[in-house]
Structures are given as structure tokens and as C-alpha cells.
Design a protein around this nucleic acid. Sequence first.
RNA 1: GCCCCAAUAGCCCAACCGGCAGAGGCAGACGACUUAAAAUCGUCACAGUCAGGGUUCGAAUCCCUGUUGGGGCACCA
Length: 833
Amino acid sequence: MRECVRGFVDENEYDFRRIEAKWAPVWEAERPFDVPDTVDSRPHKYILDMFPYPSGDLHMGHAEVYALGDVLARYWRLRGYRVLHPIGWDSFGLPAENAAIKRGVNPRDWTYDNIAQQRASMKRYAASFDWSRVLHTSDPEYYKWNQWLFLELYSKGLAYRKDSWVNWDPVDQTVLANEQVLPDGTSDRSGAVVVKKKLTQWYFRITDYAERLLADLDRLENTWPAKVLTMQRNWIGKSRGAEVTFTVEGTGRAIPVFTTRPDTLFGATFMVVAPDSDLASELAAGADPIVRQQFAEYLTEVQKKTEIERQDATRTKTGVSLGVNAINPLNGESVPVWVADYVLADYGSGAIMAVPAHDQRDLDFARKYDLPVRVVVDVASDEPNDPAQSGVATTGDGPHINSDFLDGLNKADAIAAAIERLESIGAGKGAITYRLRDWLISRQRYWGTPIPIIHGADGAEIPVDLADLPVELPPTEGLDLRPKGSSPLGAAEEWVNVPDPRDGSAATRDADTMDTFVDSSWYFLRFLSPRDTTRAFDPEQVKAWAPVDQYVGGVEHAILHLLYARFITKVLFDLGHINFDEPFSALLNQGMVILDGSKMSKSKGNIVFFGEELDKFGVDAVRLTMAFAGPPEDDIDWADVSVTGSHKFLARAWRVAHDVTSSVGADAATGSPALRRVTHRFLADIAPLIEAYKFNVVVARLMDVVNHLRKEIDTGAGAADGAVREAAEVVALALSMFAPHVAEDMWSMLGHERFVGLQKFPEADPAFLVEDSVTAIVQINGKVKERLEVATSITEEELSALALAAVESSLAGKTIRQTIVRPPKLVNIVVSD
RNA sequence: GCCCCAAUAGCCCAACCGGCAGAGGCAGACGACUUAAAAUCGUCACAGUCAGGGUUCGAAUCCCUGUUGGGGCACCA
């Protein structure tokens, strides 16, 4: 049950409404966290939270990221760093357009109305952003540089157009990148089942960077979540093996195949070509009419399948023979060539050698079409070793058989020997392939960055001159934004028809817009000089701030955004625009805010509304709850946490500061040593805890300090004590990371000038960090028998003697076998009867 | 099917290099204050660490097996 917390309009009571109303306007007027362009000598930290997409108001997920990101930003400020913590909006994208179609509003209006709403909520939430650097990716001032980026890639051959089978979302009526298709074959936006279409589209050559994108993950090993690293490695999907060239019998046409198992070449009993590959069409074209007919029917059937059906590994494999044979380069054997849709056109060369004895997919196919199975690795297991009978392909290691010069070798040696032989006879070589495909970046929708290319009547692609950027979107008036499979921009005749820059003849603009992931792949650089009209980013500012020291956001971007941003960063590095090649030095993925064990959703009706929570409990209590709920990467079940509890704690902390009667500068040295010990231990522990993202533990420790303070004021040293003031000030400083309004008010009540967020943590005094004495425990056979108060400096001999004396009576009649002494805390005496 | 992560009090969570299972909070019980209640202040109780085995003087912590939950990959040759 969450009930409403009521405040009192009384200066002597904690009232979050009064305190919020008091400080928000001051921060708004004085902008304490804006960072000027000037470079200064302090150490820098660039703390970045993933910027939001403006779909309606902020939600509880935003409340979590921006609370946690702000803890880190404020922490580094309190450590004396110069902190850049900017915010903006990822404001191009389909939802704006879909809303526009549904409600007849302009996508621009819809977007900027939402931004205004989110901006107001964000300000209310009091995250310490630099509000002078706000950017929106849908502003021409931003997407001009997005177009510049495109042209940079284009000039280096990294942006290109090709005709290919692409993922098509039949609901949103646009193409999707591979990364935007969920594992179940549906679109990550619309949820529609994705189909394949053959279209001419723009791509970024991310595959050129596959090896570096993979290798450089090692450098992020301890600063990025292991989970994200694994996901990226899987996505890039490196395979080592060999490329082997088979030759079509008769025509001599070469068929290159990629295999991870060149050692099993003697077990290849047929070949399979992807039905939708050019090679298949070519081979079928030369075949007899019956084969041609069968192939054509099969291809039609295959193309009707959805991605879901096609990716179902359990379905029965199908295929047709192409009626031609190919020669195995190692043994000269002639094997039949088939087409089957378990082979993919765009992986490897779109063709495979099939080794049914040692590959389950090939075996399934061989058994269905009665093709031969030849065992070439003797895997020496207890299992029946005949895949043709068992139906289970063997993949283990063992001596090779039926393999001529490979006989007797194990897997690794046979692979090496096979590659060596292939290379010496010119029939192949060692090779590496990647699962990663080029990034499809064109979209057939309106609300995105226009692609700055003009198509000449002769088919030439002419990059728009830099001086003519930005290519601005035309107004929506008169345009039909409804999805129809081609870009709405194509219908904006005045916009699309332009003179050919070469000779003034008729030409047209490219009517597609860019994937919005292009926009977000470099926005962290634009924050460094957001008003610069002469370039995408200022190299001086980049040198001062970049790369991002700490990135904070959801794990849903583990592949998409983070992979693209890494890629673009490497491209910009190679082009000499920046001097680093990984964009985000450290990454924190926060969990989700859920309710009653499940994800919040409109359809389930289990939504906690951001604004309502702030109304009921106050900004500080909500922010504190986000930090205190548990480790940041865990999900927060809003039903399991108590915002009321956070509110009560804040009131308690506030009251403590309110009760302090000493003046600024009161001597802490003469105050309560016990309290000082608590305060300085806390101070010493903040850094390691925050830097390990243990925000929940810091809050717990903060509560502990407040509890001690309360006790000290009520029944100890009293409200005028110097140590009490010291502790209250430390509480205000530390609390400013979580609850800025309360902290600012406490700081002010303690007689200080604003702003608490711009102060520095005092150093912990080492004198309070060491204990003079500790409680040592004495165990017999691991069970605690006695406790001794001993000096921290006690020697092994002294402690041992004290311990033996203390448990003397329990040792009567027993034999001491061993004594383990770990000064100053433990003695374990091992005895037997 | 393969891989990874987790499991500590009724609940959310702490626990350094293997060394007394508890920092903090929620919910609970009791007391003080109050005519009473709320708020506040205080006191108390509650688990032997998912199960089983191993290593060790000593295991929440290391190893193995399993259970449950979460996540990733999965016709990629």
C-alpha cells in the first residue's frame, strides 16, 4: 500500500513541497551545473545518460536512469572534478509519424510538444544536467552534421547502395536493420512478422570493422557489463575455418564454400546452395527444363516463408537437386549439388559442402533425400558411431579415417594439414567469416534525416555539396505520410526534383531517410560543442572531454546503439577527426522498474506514473528509492520498495540538520570521538562504494550516520557539539547525490552558501579509521568459545597465549592438534579427545 | 539444445583476501510522548545462507552435481 505523504506548511517541519518550491527556481536561475566552453586544469569527467526518445511524458524507467546517472555526476563533482553531464532528445523516429497519421497532427509538433513536457518533468526531477547544451536530433542544426557524417562515410566507400534481400516490416512499411529484427523474426518496433524483400538500399560497411569491433571488446572487459560484451561477441559471430573451392563438372565454374571443418573434406558427399543466391539461379539456368521448373517452384515456395518459419530449426529440411555435380578438390570426387533453404545466401559464400556424418543439419537433409553418409572422424565414444543409423551427427575429436593423408590425425592437426594442402594446390585457404552483416541505414519514412545524395538521370550518385547542407525536410503539407512502401519524400515534388549539380539537367534527391540509430551513434560528440555552426564537433573540446567516462542506460541497447556508436567512433578515428576509438570507457546498465513481478504495460494496466509518484512522495524520495532499492543492475519491483520509507528517512535527516545549534566553523576536534569515527569511516567508504555502483550500500551507510547523529543529539554530546555539526554537514554533502532538494536545504540551514552540489567532500581523517582495540574470537574446532578485547597491534604469540588461557577449562583432557592464530581477530584451536 | 548470471530473515537487500551470518530499510511486536490518534523518539524479535556432496583448522564466500528463477544464443556451415 502506498499512501499519500502530507506535508505541513511549517518552516520547522520537513515539507518536500515547500523545499522543492524553494530551490527549483534558484537552480533554474543560477544554472549551477552548466559548463562553459573554457578549458580548465581540473580533472574532467564526462558522465552521459542515454538520451530519451520523446514518446509522451517520462516514465519510471527514465526516473531510474536519470537518478542513477545523476548520482555519478554529482559524486564526481563532490570529488572536485569538472563534470559534463548533458541531456538532449533522440527526436527523429517512427512513433512521431505514426501518431501524426493516427491523429492528423504534424510529426514535428507532436515531437516538440512531447519534448517540452519531458523537459519540464526532467527539470522537476532536478537532475544536474547542463541545460545549455540541449540538442534535438530532429533539429536541422543537428541533422546537418548527420548528413556530413554520411558523406564522410560515402567518400571513403563506407556508405554504399546495393540490391539485396532485406528485412521488410509490413506494418510500418519500411526496411529494418538485422539488429532491429527480434530473435523470433518480428520487428522490434511494430511487432509485425518480418518478411524478405529484394530492394536497393543504403548500407554502412560495418563488416569492414568486424574484427576491430570484436577485438576491442577485450579493452572494455572490466568496465562494461560482461553480459553486453558477450552479446556483442555473439552478434559479431566470428568463425575460423577455410574457404574451399569446388568446381562444377563440365562447365568448370568455381563454387567457393566456407567451412569450419576443412578436416572433414573427405566426408563431403554433396553440396548445398542457398536457393535465393545468384549462384543458384545461374546453376539452374544451365540445367535441363525439368530441373529449372522444380527450382523455380522451390524458390517461390521458399520466398513465401516468413523469417519465423525459416528460422525454425526443428522443421523438416527441404530442397531440390540442381542436376549438376561438383568436384571435391582434395579427392577429385564428384558430388551432387542441391539447393536448400537451410543454407543462407548472405553468409559465407551462400554455398556449403555437406558432411552429413559430422554436421547435424547435413545429416537431417541426407537422411531425408537418401544421400550417402561417410564417417571420417572416429570419435571413439561408447555411443553408436554410425550417424546414418543413429541419426545423430558426431562432432567430437578423434583420429581421422577414410581421409587419405589426414588419416590418424586429430581434429586440430587435420584442420591445419587440410588447409596447408588446399593452399599448396591453389584450391582454398584458411579463412574467417563473421555473422555480422552490413548496417542497412535507409528507411522509407518521413521523420528522419534526408540522405544527402542526388541521383542523376544517368544513374550517377552525386553527394550534396557541404555548403548546401542541411538538406532540410520539406513541410508535411500535401504529403501523404501513410506507409506505402516508398518514401513520402518522393511525392514532395518541389523538394525531390532538383537540377543536376554537374550540368543543371533534371535530377532527383534520394527520398529515403536515415535510420535513427545513425543520429544516436555520435551525439555524445555533438554535446561537446552543440552550438558550433562550422563543424560537427570542436576538436579542442573533444580533446578536453571525450571519450565518455561513464555511460548509463538500459541493456536493451546492448547490441544496436552501442555497436553502432562503437563503429562510427572507429570510423571517425580512422578519418582523423578524433583521437580515440572506443566511445564509452565505462558502462552501467540499470535494470527495469517493474510492478508485481512483471513489466509495466498499458495493456496490463499495471503502470506506475512518474508524475503521480512525484506528487505523492516528492522528487527526492523517488530518487532516493531508485538508488536504495538494490544493486542498480537489478530490476526494481515498485511493489517491494517503500517510497514512504525513503520519505521518512529524508525527514529524519532534515530534522537533524535543523536541530544543529552550533555555528559554521565549530571545532569538530573537541566533539564526540565516537561520532567522528562514524563520520570519517563513512567518508572513507564513499569512493569505493560509489565507484563499484553500490549506491544502495551508500544510502544504508548514510542512514546509519543519521541514526548515530540523532542519538548523539538527543542523548549524547548534544546539538551544539562540533562533531555533530561535522556529521550533519557530511550527511548534507553525501545526500546531495540522491536527494538534492533536502541536501540543499540542510546545507542552507547549517549556515552555508549555496550550492551543496558544488562543494568538495572533506578528506577522511586516518586517525579515525584505525581502531585501538578489537574483539578477537577464540574458537575450538571452529566453534566460538570466547571473545577477547585485544589491542589491534597484538602479536601472534600474545594472542595465542591469551586465547589458550581464556579457554583453558574447555581444553582439559583434550589434545591440541593445531592452533591457527590470525591476529588480531581470530584464534582457532583444533583439539581431539 | 548450448552458454552466462543469480538464490542470505515474511519482503527489499549487506557481509573485504575463506575467519563471530547483519550495515540499512519495509512489514511486525512492545514502550515513551498524547485525552486519543497521527507524526516523532526508543526497545525487541526473526534466518544459519536453495538442496546434496567435496576441499579446508574454518565455507554464504572456493570446487562438483542438481533444483528454481532470470538473461543471451540457436539452420551462421
